[in-house]
């Protein structure tokens, strides 16, 4: 049962960030993650500030430079169904469509999807782990088949979002609002590495929210995709996944962004792979070598070495599928 909370639904962004600047408050977008966290005592706010009254934060629109502005409160279903996103920002449409279930996609928002808390069973369970201010990461010596193989330090969560890696691959930026105004940053620098701060997943400070996600104008020879492997076909978080954004110059890759999901505490740029692909034609050998390079720096725990092979395979398959005809 959810403990007692107070609730407010402001109707302007200004009011909302003011309310959220007060201690003991927490933002409610779609609520799909928040309500679970409240029930499980993962967060213990006194007051929930609902953002659902902020209609400016909903919807998808073209920007002046030919890019796309997606309001942070746009639902995953709306993102998955959008014609322009499907045509020009395919990785995002595929990621949104593969996240959660129909009911959750009708409720969960794109902004909320970027801010969701990790699904580590120790974090969600009754364990006073490092992320909750404790001394121990229980996954290091406990059950860790769903934990990270990259970037684990102090804490071995995986970032649960599907949309985040897709948006990073598409070079998205996010606009963040607080009581003093707004700022826009690359989404790639939004997430916090546990080596830097183990208690938070993103840079948002109290009183700050994401207001919109901005996608740059698509270049003509851009191809992108998102694919994930999961334990259940129906719906599940990624065991491993990859978002790929490729800009082509003829048959050659001009620039590559390869972002892994389900294997690291943040959406994980496979920089070596990106470099291995630049200037290359995607023949079988190049793709095989690129897929191999994606997992070279993996450091598995006791139960999750399978993720190395899974990741290599999924990168391989996804790159092959993106080859120009």
């Amino acid at each position: 049962m959810i403990p007692k909370i107070a609730y407010a639904r402001p109707h302007s962004l200004k009011e909302a960030v003011k309310e959220l600047s007060a201690p003991g408050t927490i933002a409610h977008a779609g609520g799909t993650d928040l309500l679970g966290c409240l029930r499980d005592g993962i967060v213990t706010p006194e007051k929930v500030i609902s953002l659902s009254g902020l209609s400016d934060l909903k919807g998808i629109a073209r920007t002046g430079d030919g890019g796309l502005r997606i309001g942070a409160l746009t639902t995953l279903a709306e993102v998955a169904d959008d014609h322009v996103i499907n045509e020009q920002f395919t990785a995002l449409a595929e990621a949104a469509a593969s996240a959660a279930s129909p009911q959750l996609r009708n409720q969960g928002t794109l902004g909320g999807n970027l801010c969701q808390r990790p699904r580590c069973w120790y974090f969600r369970g009754e364990f006073h782990c490092r992320r909750k201010g404790g001394e121990i990461c229980f996954a290091m010596n406990g059950r860790n088949e769903f934990h990270c193989i990259f970037g684990g330090q102090n804490c071995f969560i995986v970032h649960p979002s599907d949309s985040a890696p897709a948006l990073v691959a598409l070079e998205a930026r996010v606009r963040i609002a607080n009581s003093r105004g707004t700022r826009t940053i690359p989404l790639d620098s939004f997430f916090v590495d546990p080596a830097k701060d183990v208690t938070r997943e993103n840079i948002l400070r109290p009183g700050e929210i994401i207001t919109e996600i901005l996608l740059p104008a698509p270049v003509t020879q851009m191809r992108s995709s998102y694919r994930k492997a999961r334990a259940r076909g129906a719906w599940d978080f990624a065991l491993s996944g990859v978002a790929i954004g490729l800009r082509f110059n003829g048959k050659r890759v001009d620039q590559a962004r390869i972002v892994l999901s389900g294997v690291a505490p943040i959406p994980w740029r496979a920089v070596e792979t990106e470099q291995a692909l630049a200037g290359k034609i995607l023949d079988g050998e190049t793709v095989a070598r690129a897929a191999e390079s994606a997992v070279r720096s993996a450091e598995p725990l006791s139960d999750n070495a399978y993720k190395i092979h899974l990741t290599q395979g999924i990168v391989h398959e996804s790159l092959m599928a993106l080859r120009p005809e």
């Binding site: 609730y7 639904r9 409610h28 609520g31 799909t32 309500l35 679970g36 929930v48 609902s50 659902s52 279903a77 129909p102 009911q103 959750l104 009708n106 409720q107």
Partner: peptide, 15 residues
């Protein structure tokens, strides 16, 4: 909710 399936267990009544 407005014709779309959603989980009522994850929706605050006030929402």
């Amino acid at each position: 909710i407005d014709g779309k399936p959603r989980y009522s267990c994850l929706t605050l009544a006030l929402e």
